[in-house]
Design a protein around this nucleic acid. Structure first.
Lengths: 223, 223
DNA sequence: GTCTATATTGGGATAGAC
DNA sequence: GTCTATCCCAATATAGAC
């Protein structure tokens, strides 16, 4: 629990001004050994869970020495923070790549629904998030990083659904919140019990409901 | 990881026929010491998370001895399974108590929405579930218990929404899946970031969407 | 920067007295 | 049934050689 590593670069720097720009890739700028360690940690997290994320396991998976973790990240907490940063960055990049412009209407809605389905199917990222979440809830710095991730999610979806001066802006913001919640919640049921939880049918119904409410808001033409 | 405790009552029995009846309270029938231990474990899980759920911590919190855990539950895994059972039972009881009969229509929808909001606000149960979920995903016996819990959730909500011979039965089942997913997903955003995630507005929009689709299915009269 | 070796802590399990 | 005392092991952290 000591906050100050005794030597080495220790905690990753550049949180202060970097966040506003949101251009830096936190892993890109790391020395190769540190990247190896982070990649190994990510694999272990997805494959075996947070409990299995021990320094020895990471070192073995990365084929590096245990001590190198202390050198590069200060301590285990530092490594976990760096890991969360890399997961957050990855998640943002994947969602932003789907923000391609369509005119508002049928095409854009299709792209959004397809993206949603794809995210529910991407088990790895979801598993990583599920493993991290309980710890993030209890750790200030992790928590704010993950909270920022969700805020960005919402902003991106809202951006897909509307313009800033949209008269129904507030309601579309709520719709974005609902969509993100649905992706998470359906992923839970899907991971637990793919047979009994019919997520495909649920998503189809959700699409119908979105059309229903968007028609009310007269945002799109639907058949 | 040894499956067979060397002495004592060991693993809780009566899964086979008990499940079909679903009347037994798994904690009610336990000796007082075991109940103390389970209650203590539940408090620690909610307060400090799964990582903090050590035998020493549980013994201290319950004011019992470490060895008593081995006696009553075989080993730590046995205790965790019993803990999950008790959480599942508690969750079922709380949702079943809300299944009071209203005629299909406005009243019943109101009761359902109120229940949903109340569950999102019940942070403790959700936190406990979040802590357990990642482990449940990786452990066969925990997984099936939690999966059963979700299946029961869906059945209960579906029961509130319809009768067995409802012509729109399949779609109402999907609606139940969506509702459960929403409760989980909104809880995540709410726990992470109550300020930026406006769950109240999101739930209000969800209600509007439900009315929209139920009107299409001509299930209820809405103003 | 990277390693080996080690100090220290804490967890889970259990023997054996009562 | 319950306790104390102990064993074994895994994990983190770090000193110090290279």
């Amino acid at each position: 629990m000591s906050d100050i590593p005794k030597r080495g670069p220790g905690r990753p720097r550049t949180r202060d001004k970097a966040r506003a720009l949101r251009v830096d890739d936190p892993i890109e700028s790391l020395p190769p050994t540190a990247r190896n360690l982070l990649d190994a940690a990510r694999r272990i997290l997805v494959r075996d869970g947070f409990t299995a994320l021990s320094l020895s396991a990471i070192a073995a998976e990365a084929d590096e020495s245990k001590a190198s973790i202390g050198y590069h990240f200060g301590n285990k907490e530092g490594l976990v923070v760096a890991l969360v940063d890399s997961l957050v960055h990855e998640a943002n990049r994947s969602i932003i790549s789907e923000t391609h412009r369509y005119p508002m209407g049928e095409q854009r809605l299709r792209a959004l629904m397809d993206g949603e389905k794809r995210i529910v199917d991407d088990t790895d990222s979801f598993v990583a998030l599920m493993e991290i979440l309980p710890h993030a809830m209890r750790d200030g710095s992790l928590r704010s990083r993950v909270a920022d991730l969700y805020a960005d999610y919402r902003a991106t979806v809202l951006d897909v659904l509307s313009a800033q001066d949209d008269p129904a802006y507030a309601e579309l913001a709520s719709l974005a919140t609902l969509m993100i919640a649905l992706v998470d919640g359906l992923s839970v049921q899907h991971s637990l019990d793919p047979d009994r939880a019919n997520v495909a049918a649920a998503i189809a119904l959700w699409e119908k409901m979105m059309r229903c409410v968007l028609r009310d808001l007269r945002m799109i033409d639907v058949g």
